[in-house]
């Protein structure tokens, strides 16, 4: 799949839709079976997760780069 295909507006919309549905299912999961007490915490955690999703996908060892410090 090309990079262009991944960033088409329709693709972005569908990805956003998938994420929102996953969030919905997650909240439903925690809303049942004696897990309600985790719900507020899960909500806070989800908000903070935006930061991580935005910066994911990098390797920890940089090839061809020798650190100076």
């Amino acid at each position: 799949m090309s990079a262009a295909a991944r960033t088409r507006p329709s693709a972005i919309r569908s990805r956003l839709g998938n994420r929102l549905r996953t969030i919905g299912r997650l909240l439903a999961h925690f809303a049942t079976r004696q897990k309600w007490f985790l719900l507020p915490l899960v909500l806070v955690l989800l908000v903070s997760a935006v930061l991580l999703v935005a910066t994911s996908g990098l390797s920890y060892v940089a090839p061809f780069v020798y650190s100076i410090f």
């Binding site: 955690l45 903070s48 930061l51 935005a54 910066t55 990098l58």
Partner: peptide, 22 residues
């Protein structure tokens, strides 16, 4: 890429801080 790496490092710090408070 360097900018993103720096961004990840900073985001990591902010996140760790936020998580500790949570």
């Amino acid at each position: 890429r360097t900018w993103r790496r720096a961004g990840r490092a900073i985001a990591g710090l902010v996140f760790a801080l936020a998580m500790s408070v949570v």
